[in-house]
Design a protein around this nucleic acid. Structure first.
Lengths: 185, 185
DNA sequence: GTCTATATTCCGATAGAC
DNA sequence: GTCTATCGGAATATAGAC
């Protein structure tokens, strides 16, 4: 992929996380990169094309990250995931899922499908991590692993939303309590 | 308040919950009510005025609901709150907090302040409910009540977001596991 | 309080030159 | 691959008649 195209996707990713998909324009991308909106349209004819690319890159990033953690104990894998959210919190970002879920009903079918693909991938990974972690006595929780995965995902997602409104300490308090719940016997 | 004004706020509330604040227009409100966009502007000169009113009505609704539950045991008060979210889930709504937190950075200062006021009110009530519930042995959880309040709020908030993307069963699985966590000893 | 009409701005998108 | 120029449409908002 060309350098400009990369920068466009990176800028779009940032804008989705800070302002939401429907609240940024091609101009918001073009101006900081010192190009014209027509150049953005050359790489991504429609805004939905850009949205799909942002999601696809996020899916790849998630898959390559989790693959790198594969050899770690499950509690440490989970801590790595929390660290990803911690970093976003420090940058004033919300997560892609949270941002795109809010605007979901306004999306074209191809974008909706991509969002669902991303959600399913994260929940699947989390469910498997929890199941294995419980088996290996690295993680402790009650109930079904897939329900717990949904709970943890919702905690991480909303921790960034609440941090934005209530101050960044909200993230830390949620993340700390979350890991404590899962790691103490 | 006039009847038309009430209908406008109700319609705006619905649109915020289904499409997001930045993704609906005065036309989306005026058309279904069979009035013109100028009539909406008469009641709410700027869109932010309408946003503030929607939030204020939600705060009042929350306060009057929780006041009605005051005599109930804390676990039942919590179940009542979950029921409010369950109803929204059935209607395809996300919660105001979730929707407005996503768009937060795009809001004018008066609207941002109102969102923060709403968030603080909900967390305060939840924290108090949890504290009293633990004291009365109706609710069981580890750690500080205010951290647990943030966790529960994030679960409820994101349960509606995830339901939208992954199907409405996501809400039920999260809500059921949540109440089970808190109610079993 | 609601209307018609319009001002203004911005957006996504495209045509065609370079 | 990027530009200038522009189209068509939609959004927020206002002026003034009724």
């Amino acid at each position: 992929m060309s350098e400009t195209k990369d920068k466009i996707v990176a800028m779009a990713d940032r804008l989705v996380r800070t302002r939401g998909f429907n609240a940024f324009s091609y101009k918001d991308i073009a101006d900081p990169l010192d190009i014209k909106n027509a150049a953005v349209h050359y790489h991504f004819p429609a805004k939905a094309d850009l949205g799909v690319e942002v999601i696809e890159q996020e899916i790849e990033k998630f898959n390559s990250s989790t693959a790198k953690w594969k050899h770690l104990p499950e509690d440490e894998q989970l801590a790595k995931l929390v660290d990803v959210f911690r970093k976003h919190n420090g940058q004033g970002n919300i997560c892609l899922m949270g941002s795109l879920a809010t605007d979901f009903e306004t999306f074209s079918p191809p974008m909706q499908t991509k969002v669902q693909e991303m959600a399913n991938g994260i929940v699947s990974w989390l469910t498997n991590c929890l199941e294995q972690g419980r088996k290996n006595k690295r993680l402790h929780f009650k109930g079904a692993a897939d329900a717990r995965a949904l709970i943890i995902m919702s905690n991480l997602q909303s921790s960034l939303l609440l941090s934005r409104v209530m101050g960044p300490s909200a993230f830390r308090r949620i993340a700390d309590q979350l890991m404590e719940d899962l790691c103490q016997k």
